[in-house]
Design a protein around this nucleic acid. Structure first.
Lengths: 345, 345
DNA sequence: CGCAACTGTCGAACCGGTTCAACTACAGGA
DNA sequence: TCCTGTAGTTGAACCGGTTCGACAGTTGCG
């Protein structure tokens, strides 16, 4: 493998001249520059990443810490990943994917050893053990998800509170007065998944203000449990005319449950979900939904991270907590409440 | 950040002694070893990855090249990823995830710059442009998926030919004489996805031998196209009594289509799919299936790769092409053929 | 008792880049 | 003519590890 020394010899110049010719950091005569570039080309020279990292203290690699809990929905996870890797590459960075169960130890390892220039954290918990480590690390970090304490970090998330309000407002405006809200399973909350109760509490609060009855329940993450749950809920609240779903698995299971019960949407039941357009397309979900934009969130986090990595000035800027505002994409699954459910007693 | 020089000074020894004490590559007195370890602990010493890579020519990072085509099924992809990252970590390696569209260029970049000690390639095409680059690279590589030319590479894949035969055999043994096989969409084949016709051709061949009629068709990868296709097929071949599906999206769509048509499985139609147990659980698919074991394949590829990376002897061993044999997991969705389909004309 | 072998430690070189200080050659201004 | 400034180039140092060869001190054996 050719080194910069080989290139220099081939071009008949010193190593430092070759380096400057390639980087352009000092004026080099046109003639010499040409020779160096030709030599590099001829020898298929590629700088050694380790040597460059050692000399410049920059690896051009970003860390991505993601946890794959078995109760999390794979397709959604995938889009976060892609948003991060694609944007990183656009900006000239590669991505080190770390899925270790002990996220705190993994984070310490990759930051202390200087393998990465910055880190994106996903699956943020309310009281996340990785945060103190990230704050103390020499590299900047960005979060996809809102923790209890955002200090010292850039944070990006969907505005789940506003999402809850938008859902309730929308159905209230259409005339609905009794709704069901299905969240993620309870242990997602126990694990610190704050987005679950952020949406839920805001929806409950808004419902209270508007005089709407809202039955808020935890969901399930898998079939067949989630199908059973849907049936049980529809049985338990026969007079509810609207269904809000903050749970991908439940959303994916709804069409067959509705079909089975002979339930027409939106005729018998208005439905609003919360998921991504990509997810909607894969499963052809016919429901209006709040766009959760995972790829956009991942992309935003990386952009901000790279800004801090590359600009010394940006390092000292105040930290941002940026919510993307929930956009309701209409698929015609909501309407004014009509007849009560067919199976109402 | 503490360097090994700091540790050496703190322990009152030379840099080389500190290095040997930490690595154990030379005998060091108990007394000195203790002092060095204590100093390293006290200073929270972590070796600099770049410096170590430069000195040892080992990065302890594996590259994972994956392409995310929009017509590929996200949950399956995810499991390959996890199989690779988890096994890599168990063996002491981190994973650089590269999803660049131009896989050949990306591969050249990470191998030439010596960012990785080895590479796992996924989404292998029949005539994959990345293979010549991988063969010429100084690092070893492993493939998850079977290309047209396996020379010079370790290859791991499900035995799709045998899978096709197992499916046909199983239903033939039960008495079925007319079957439908739904594959992936045609453009997956055009892109070089050989596994599609490997299963298909073997199934056709076996069907011919057994005197079974097999209608082999390309599928769709998304709703609602795939649902429409299922309906069209069941209309077109009303006398078929068995359905073989080598297409995750079609499998996921089948329950609601069957329900809609009032079609009972296995009473009216026997069904065998090809997917992973994890996928089956997420969607609660009630069908017998050939386990495609993506996590196991990813794991096997990494193990072999690391063997070659770490042992000079292993480098010269002959290359392996290893197929995992298809295991038919019974979920009771097959039975002897009964009455013709209800909607038969 | 002398020599070989072994143990434990150290200094120096090396991996492959980047960058600083210094030097040369030449142009322009006083 | 001399001085200053600038463009172009170079050698040397440095980043932070690993490893080779040398060496001093000790032990074992003939």
């Amino acid at each position: 493998m050719a080194t910069i020394g080989d290139v220099a010899r081939e071009a008949g110049v010193s190593r430092s001249t070759a380096s400057y010719a390639l980087s352009g950091k000092r004026p080099i005569s046109e003639e010499v520059r040409r020779r160096v570039l030709a030599a590099a080309e001829a020898l298929a020279y590629t700088p050694n990443a380790g040597a460059r990292a050692l000399a410049t203290s920059q690896t051009k690699v970003l860390g991505l810490l993601a946890q794959f809990h078995e109760d999390e929905f794979a397709p959604a996870m995938m889009q976060y990943l892609l948003g991060v890797t694609d944007t990183a590459r656009d900006l000239g960075y590669d991505t080190l994917l770390v899925t270790e169960a002990d996220g705190a130890r993994a984070l310490r390892r990759i930051t202390d050893s200087r393998m990465v220039d910055g880190v994106v954290l996903m699956n943020i918990a309310q009281d996340d053990p990785r945060l103190p480590i990230l704050r103390a690390a020499p590299q900047p970090g960005a979060l996809v998800g809102l923790p209890g304490d955002c200090s010292g970090l850039d944070v990006f998330d969907l505005d789940f509170e506003e999402a809850g309000r938008v859902m309730v407002d929308h159905l209230h405006r259409l005339g609905h007065r009794e709704l069901i809200l299905i969240s993620q399973p309870e242990h997602v909350v126990e694990r610190g998944g704050a987005y679950v109760w952020r949406l839920r509490d805001a929806a409950l609060e808004r419902a209270r203000q508007l005089g709407v009855t809202l039955h808020a329940v935890y969901g399930e993450s898998r079939q067949p449990a989630v199908g059973r749950l849907l049936n049980a809920l529809l049985d338990a609240y026969p007079s509810a005319t609207g269904l809000l779903i903050n749970n991908e698995a439940a959303t994916a299971a709804l069409p067959s449950v509705a079909h089975e019960r002979g339930l027409r949407v939106p005729g018998d039941l208005s439905v609003i979900g919360r998921y991504s357009a990509e997810f909607a397309a894969t499963f052809s979900l016919p429901y209006s939904f709040i766009e959760s934009a995972p790829d956009r969130l991942g992309s935003m986090a990386v952009r901000q991270l790279v800004r801090r990595v590359e600009s010394p000035a940006a390092r000292d800027e105040p930290f941002v907590v940026r919510f993307i505002s929930p956009e309701l994409v209409s698929r015609g699954s909501t309407a004014p409440p009509g007849a009560p459910l067919p199976n109402a007693r």
